[in-house]
Structures are given as structure tokens and as C-alpha cells.
Design a binder for these strands. Structure first.
Lengths: 168, 168
DNA sequence: ATAAACTTTCAATAATATTTGAAAGTTTAA
DNA sequence: TTAAACTTTCAAATATTATTGAAAGTTTAT
């Protein structure tokens, strides 16, 4: 396969994967483009490469910066802003995990904890089932949370190394 | 908090979480409703409880069955179909992980492997960066894949027990 | 102060995803 | 068979989300 075709497919696949996981397709594609680019790119170049508008490129880049996946760069003597993506995959994974934990898991955990205080009639099956289900989900969410927290602190080698030792 | 309000909030939160992770909001809500219901429910009851149309209820239930999260039940002497959700949270987590792995991770892994065979000029920075990035992502995806496979086989107690020992 | 170079905003538009509801299909009982 | 009870389908309508592009805003150099 030629580089040009491979790039194309990679960007497409990354975009699809992103959209399947609730991440804007364009955002994933811009990220993919920057990931495989050795140099930082300008807004113009990104617009051109992905055929998107200036407004879209601007907002998407801002979001990516918000996720901690991309940073602005300035070249001496130039007015233009350049955008560069973190290339360390483990760092990317941690960053995404951290953001989604903060934005989505934490609020749910908070609510689940509140829901465990629900009052009702112990004889009522609806009440009992509700309590059990919520308690159960709460426990799993707590476990996921702890695992993520460990992962966020961990070095890649330590994390996978330990996991593999565990899983033989 | 009263049971009625708590149910409401739970269904809402589950729907929101689902939509943030690329799962249709209604599907997540129907799942939530069944999760906290001690009895199997009919299509009518689900339509009523969530104010959704018959067509929507029918399709959503079919999808949930496709995900292995809900099953049909029949009561003797009745024509109506009843729907019941698996209540074991660990089983749900495994089921979801398995489906998403099959539908989304596996195809990406396949593509990534193909992309590692890209040909090009070793002196070309674009080529080198592409190869490195893809190889790196491929490795991480492989690790995630192996971990999921282990998780799919694992018993809950063993899985989290081991994880906690590991993470002290 | 002015203008060129560049970035940001956001109302309008387009694209995508979800939902409806009525008709068609199926199954069961008599 | 017939009809009632129930389920499924899918084209059309609606709702949601993403994108455009031109105007407004900002910064820098002269």
C-alpha cells in the first residue's frame, strides 16, 4: 500500500471510530491528520487536507486543545499559528481517559451515590430491585473509577507489564 | 429521595451516559427501565413509561436483544411478549465490552495491521512518522484487545480481586 | 493611525440520527 | 375461515448535531 492511500484510510478509520464512541468525526480526523504529520500544521493546511471550512477547523482545533491532545506552536518570524499533536500513544490514551472520566464518569458516580439514599418500603419489589441494581452498578462504577485513577498515574510499561503478569 | 423521583433520575442519567458513549439515548433508557423493574414488561408498558411510540419501542427492544442485554419472555396463557433485562452488572459489562469489541475494535485492529505494511521512502519524514504512529497505536490496541479478551472470560470476583491486589 | 495578516464567532444551512404512526404482517382461538 | 390480538416494517416527519462562510475581532508592522 502506498503512503497516500494509507494516510487516507487511517484518517477515515480514526474518524469512524471516534464517531462510534461519541467523539465528533471531524475532531477525530483532525487529530489523526496531526498524529501522522511530522510537522505542526497551519489551519490552512488542515482545511485543505480534510476539505473543511475555516470555522470548523478553528472550533475543532480549539476542542482538541481542550482535550489536551493538541497544542499551538509559533514559528519565529511568522504570524501564523501551527498545531501539533502529542504523538505518545500512551499519553493520548491517558489524556482521553482522564477527560472522559472527568466529564462523564464522575457526574454519574455522584448521582449513583445520591440514588443509594432512596427511601421506600422494604416489602416493595420495585424498591428492592431498584436498590439492588443501583448498588450493583455503583460498585462496578467505583471499580472502573479506581482502575482509571491507577492508569492515569501509571507508566505504560508498568501498567501493561503488571496487567500481563496478572493475566499470564 | 422518593422511589419515583430516583427512578426518573436513574433513567435520565443512563440515557445521557449512553448517548455520550455512542449508544442511542432511548435504547439506554429502555435498558435502564428494565434494569430496575423486578418484573418483565410488555411493549405497551414500556411505551407508556417512557412516552415513546410503538415502532420505536419495538426497534429498540430488538436492538437490546441483539446486544444480549434483554430477552423475551412469555407468560403461560398470554399472547403478549414480555421483556426482561439481565440484572447482573458484571454480565452486562462483559456483554457490552464483547459487542463493542466485535463491532468496532476488531475492524480497526484489522486495518491497523494492514497499514503497517505501507511502503515508502525511509528518508521521508512523513513516511517515518506514519509508520511509527501506526505501529504505536497498533501496539496499544493489541494490549486493549488482550485485556478485553481476558475480561470476557473472567469471573467478576477474580477479575477485580486480582486488579486490586495489583493496585494495592 | 492604518492596513495587512491572521483568528474567532455565530446565524443560517446542511447532514445525520431518531422517532412516529399507520399499514402490513403474523399468530392464535374459535 | 375469520377476526381479534399482537408484532413488525418503513417512509415521512422531527429533532439533533455538525458545518459553512462571511463579518467581526485581534494582533502586528510600518
Amino acid at each position: 500500500m502506498e503512503l497516500q492511500e494509507a494516510k487516507q484510510k487511517f484518517i477515515e478509520a480514526w474518524g469512524k471510530l471516534g464517531s462510534e464512541w461519541g467523539i465528533n468525526r471531524t475532531m477525530a480526523q483532525v487529530h489523526a491528520l496531526l498524529l501522522i504529520s511530522p510537522e505542526a500544521l497551519t489551519t490552512e493546511e488542515i482545511m485543505e487536507a480534510l476539505s473543511i471550512s475555516r470555522g470548523n477547523a478553528n472550533m475543532t482545533l480549539r476542542d482538541l486543545i481542550g482535550w489536551g491532545l493538541v497544542e499551538k506552536q509559533h514559528k519565529p518570524g511568522e504570524r501564523k499559528e501551527y498545531f501539533y499533536a502529542e504523538k505518545d500513544t500512551w499519553a493520548i490514551a491517558r489524556q482521553v481517559a482522564q477527560e472522559r472520566k472527568k466529564r462523564e464518569l464522575d457526574p454519574v458516580l455522584k448521582l449513583l451515590n445520591e440514588l443509594t439514599t432512596v427511601t421506600g418500603d422494604e416489602k416493595d419489589p420495585a424498591y428492592k430491585t431498584f436498590k439492588t441494581s443501583v448498588a450493583d452498578i455503583n460498585k462496578l462504577a467505583g471499580n472502573v473509577n479506581k482502575t482509571l485513577e491507577t492508569m492515569l498515574k501509571a507508566e505504560e510499561s508498568w501498567f501493561w507489564g503488571s496487567l500481563f503478569k496478572l493475566f499470564k
